[in-house]
């Protein structure tokens, strides 16, 4: 910018640089998330088709799944999106301490979500609800277990990757790696995290509520 300010050189003789006015990292993350949308759409599509083909095999969600526990967990994940936003906002104003604390809070909430999901899986498995042939004779058939664990499991995998990336981002933040003019890493972390959160709201609705 200093060059342009000096007036010595006209940077763009005919028209400004084309492009989105968005830096590469952010654009790349948006593009990547589009592919994630297609990935989850394919799984959700498969879920819908299999469920309609086997209406009897799917018990009322409340009969098998612990809906209140997961509703609480959903609330936790939404809170983690809020802390993520707070962290980014703090970074934009140059509040390094705030950035670090809010990022840590997000890590904690994400890990908490995963722990609750682990407990839920453990409880369901001990009741005999497993994703294979001999699944849950009482209230559902094999197909219910398979689709349930696949959908929630892939979301869980995405949260796990997110938590690991958040830990990395936090460490970098503690080392002062981000500034108000160099905040791409935190911003794309946030984009990913909000996406994972949004997917969960959809999954919670179609797997647990409907």
């Amino acid at each position: 910018m200093s060059q342009a300010a000096a007036g010595a050189i006209t940077l763009y003789p005919r028209r400004p640089m084309p492009g989105m006015g968005v830096y590469n990292l952010k654009l790349g993350m948006w593009v990547f998330l589009l592919s994630e949308v297609m990935f989850f759409s394919s799984l959700i599509g498969a879920y819908i088709i299999l469920r309609f083909a086997n209406l009897d095999a799917y018990a009322q969600p409340g009969a098998v799944l612990n809906v209140p526990l997961t509703a609480f967990n959903t609330f936790v994940l939404i809170c983690s999106s809020v802390t993520m936003v707070k962290g980014f906002a703090a970074l934009q104003t140059g509040d390094q301490r705030g950035t670090r604390l809010w990022l840590l809070a997000t890590v904690f909430l994400g890990a908490f979500f995963l722990s609750v999901q682990g407990i839920e899986y453990y409880q369901l498995a001990s009741e005999g609800f497993v994703p294979s042939a001999s699944s849950y004779e009482a209230e559902g058939a094999a197909i219910y277990g398979m689709t349930f664990y696949t959908l929630t499991g892939f979301h869980g995998a995405h949260v796990t990757i997110g938590v690991l990336a958040l830990i990395f981002t936090s460490v970098k933040a503690f080392r002062g790696g981000y500034t108000p003019t160099k905040l791409g890493g935190v911003e794309i972390m946030g984009l990913y995290w909000h996406f994972v959160d949004l997917v969960w709201i959809i999954l919670f609705t179609i797997v647990y509520l409907i």
Partner: peptide
């Protein structure tokens, strides 16, 4: 893993 998303005997398509 022994699931049956595409196996009709297990509810798959």
């Amino acid at each position: 893993l022994g699931t049956g998303f595409f196996i009709p005997e297990m509810g798959g398509e």
